[in-house]
Amino acid sequence: MDKTQNNKAWFLVLPVLLLVAFSAVLPLMTVVNYAFNDTFGNNEFFWAGLEWFEDMVTSDRLHDALGRQILFSAIILAIQVPLGIFIALNMPKKGFWASLVLILMALPLLIPFNVVGTIWQIFGRVDIGLLGHSLAAMGIDYNYTNDPLDAWITVVVMDVWHWTSLVALLCYAGLQSIPQAYYQAAKIDQATRWSVFRYIELPKMKGVLLIAVLLRFMDSFMIYTEPFVVTGGGPGNSTTFLSIDLAKMATGQFDLGPAAAFSLMYFCVILLISWVFYTVMTNLDREENR
């Protein structure tokens, strides 16, 4: 215990601590304060107590938005994860085509969210968009501004377009790390394509796949910009997801108190999900290293 200790290096963390305090902790504290007060602006506040929280947990509007959000995330995961794995399995392994495909696949990931929304907003329009026009020419009644189902399909397809490449690229990286010897051994054992996938490729992809699922779930659960640009939450409220509803409440109606209570609950849900995923991931690592 006589080892010399010098803890002065901790002071080097101070700038970061200050930065975090101002960029994260203070804003969070103000949100907490908003959630317990009523305000009409002008720095005038009236104590509201638990009123906003009570309003929010019992509000049908919020329940509906939460339901839509969970449905959306579930659909997104159900499409993007299998599709991403499928694409990754079909990607060329090396050479010119591999590089070209990689670059082309990364394109949607590089486009700003706003622009992605605009692209699909135009692309789906019946009068000037290729998709809308072609569907109309085929006699399919498609109009994402009127029909809730069409709006949902557009938003889901847009998200698939935007993010499937991410899942595919992550899986591709996992696949590339499998030594060739594994495949040769499988060939000697006359393994079918399915058992190669099930017992060699899938276990090797498990780690990256979990990260992909986590990323896609979090992103889709917090999605705002793209559906907002395409449908604006409509028609009616049919594509109003949690964050769109939150923005409507906070900036549209200026209901800062309810919006703050809402965002705190949103925050807790996100924290819970991240914690669950983090725990599962670290435990997987632990089991693998054992």
Binding site: I87, N90, M91, P92, V101, L104, M105, L107, P108, I111, I119, W120, I122, F123, G129, L130, L131, W161, S165
Partner: peptide, 14 residues
């Protein structure tokens, strides 16, 4: 891969 890349690129082309 061709189908998937077409799906990715057509909206950008548009």
């Amino acid at each position: 891969m061709t189908i998937y890349l077409l799906f990715l690129l057509i909206p950008i082309y548009w």
